[in-house]
Design a protein around this nucleic acid. Structure first.
Lengths: 347, 347
DNA sequence: ATCGAAATTTAAAACGTTTGCATTTTTGCA
DNA sequence: TGCAAAAATGCAAACGTTTTAAATTTCGAT
């Protein structure tokens, strides 16, 4: 029962016009008589005409697609922001009539090779690159190619400009410190990761800068590092800071997953949050609201960011601006119950 | 600095061969001398040749894409499974060299119109349709068009066959009942939704069937219905069943979000879970592990399902099987701490 | 009525592939 | 060495659109 799709030629024939005229009429060219335009649009709608994307792309060089390469993850690891991110991108794109292509990197292939394929096969007019590492071969490639892209995140340092949108983790971590300091905390812990991601520096530096700004020599900061995806090592690292003879009264975690582990291990060690220990995370993942006593964290509003990234990318594609577009989004504090005044007595 | 992309014609010229031969060599046709094939493949790799998708699609009629239309949601509602689902689809597709197109339905446009556009513009060779309602115009459309698709979920009843994969909610809810019955529960509550989704029937029917199978006339089931996305009404509904003079000892919720609300409201009402009340959910969302005391639920393994859906769809596209492909996935019980023996005394 | 400019429409090329069919080259055998 | 068959390669059309440049029609002013 496969229904055939109507083509421009057929539509033109039925209107007794040339393909050219119909094409232009549908594109709304002033050049075509208004009466004709209306007649064509009406007929197209009635016939349910939808232009063939491949043909259009081939001749115009514009696909109307934006690409995103899904990061490769282990069997049980799903990017926790993917849903929100993709939703936001979709929202941002659809208002400009663009759609999203999701290319997955197979286990053998590198993310870069998939990106290359997306770019060079002409499937997309631009790409979004997420989870930027300290140095990132993807950005180098895209820059060299001169292909439109927007990065979600930044390089540690680079000798070239590029379009990016990032969450202002430095500011958030400074804010976290100030809030905890004002609550009387002087001994801090930071749980960070060993993976070479730029954001770990930005956030840690933000924390360090706030400490320096305060200029109080009694402030102490212990830093502990865990591999990102190894739950066991993560627990071990958290306990190193938690079970020491002289533990911090406040722990800031690089992101919520780590903070939740801190809270779990604190409970296991018989510590009460926030009475004995304050914990602050970052990201505001769904579980943070439910994990007792409710994790205080920062919301990065991924969906909104993704929407802006889409807007930026479409601008880059359409206008090729001379200067790079950059945007730093300040996350908002979500004050729940995992932080409080520093305990009076120290053991 | 935009680097040009190499084309088949250029590659052919550099090899001093015709386009035809190069095209066939790359496709691995036996027809082309082995020596030539090797030479061409080698040169193509070295030149970084990537075939243009639009041109290939135009002539072959195959895009190598599978489409998914993102459900329209309110500003703060993101499909909680989208990330997992998309990851699974990607995994399933990439092994066959296919990629995913995500089309978003703008606020004005219906999901159906976006689907039509995806189908009729030739962007995709097949589509995945999720969140099937009791009756669903999307399936009717796809069937009429004869366009390859796989549904994630089922229609309430239909006069035609179609390809679907569904979670066996009926079985899970039967299992939940049996488990709770064996723990001594006789008075049950079901929290369900008012939205016209097929799965609410399947799950409720599964529960009812298990009750009937047991044949114990002392078993009682109270059902309460709430709108899906209205948190306030949801709380109100939950309290109707929780604060009644004669409340159930065990509540089964249609899915985890509802179960979490039940647990929150139970706590607010001074009830201890599972001592005073057993709660069981469905879906195993991330928060369920963290919400105290840990929600007992069923894991539907969305990612795995999505991978299978991808496989099914690619089969449908390639082989056009005569009989519909169907697949019922049994969810696995995730026994946490929200269920337990029925309380001895009744108020 | 005639002409030229403005308004409208059209023919044809191009985009980069795949593929049916024709052509050329090689091979095996007499 | 010649010739037919087999093997290998190439020509050209086609896919459905956009767009350049050209052709046609309309219209107002003389």
């Amino acid at each position: 029962m496969t229904t055939r799709v109507i083509t421009l030629k057929e539509l033109a024939a039925s209107l007794d016009l040339s393909i050219t005229t119909v094409s232009r009429a549908l594109a709304g060219h002033e050049q075509i008589a208004l009466k004709t335009r209306e007649r064509v649009v009406q007929a197209a709608r009635q016939a349910g005409y939808v232009p063939n994307t491949a043909a259009r792309t081939l001749v115009s060089g514009r696909s109307g697609f934006v690409g995103l390469v899904l990061p490769i993850r282990g069997p049980n690891l799903v990017d926790s922001f993917l849903g929100e991110f993709v939703t936001g991108l979709g929202e941002g794109l659809v208002s400009h009539g663009a759609d999203l292509i999701l290319a997955t990197a197979a286990l053998g292939h590198s993310e870069l090779s998939v990106l290359r394929h997306v770019v060079e096969s002409g499937r997309a007019d631009g790409v979004v690159v997420t989870r930027i590492a300290e140095t990132d071969e993807r950005l180098a490639y895209l820059r060299e190619r001169g292909f439109p892209f927007v990065a979600h995140g930044r390089l540690l340092d680079s000798d070239f400009g590029y379009n990016w949108l990032d969450t202002d983790g430095a500011h958030a971590f400074g804010e976290a410190f100030d809030m905890l300091y004002d609550l009387g905390h002087r001994h801090f812990g930071l749980v960070t990761i060993s993976e070479a991601m730029t954001f770990r520096h930005l956030r840690q530096d933000g924390l360090a800068a706030a400490i320096a700004r305060r200029g109080d020599p009694s402030v102490r900061l212990d830093v502990v590092t865990a591999p990102r995806f190894d739950q066991e090592a993560r627990i071990e690292a958290v306990n190193r800071i938690l079970r020491g003879p002289d533990r911090p009264t406040a722990i800031v975690a690089l992101f919520d997953e780590l903070a939740l582990t801190v809270m779990e291990e604190a409970a296991r060690a018989g510590l009460s949050v926030p009475r004995d220990l304050s914990v602050i995370g970052f990201d505001n993942i769904a579980a943070s609201a439910y994990a007792p006593p409710g994790l205080t964290t920062f919301d990065a509003s991924i969906r909104q960011c993704a929407r802006e990234i889409a807007d930026m990318l479409l601008t880059v594609i359409a206008e090729k601006p001379g200067k790079p577009l950059t945007r730093l989004i300040r996350p908002t504090l979500v004050a729940r119950a995992s932080h409080g005044p520093a305990p009076r007595t120290r053991s």
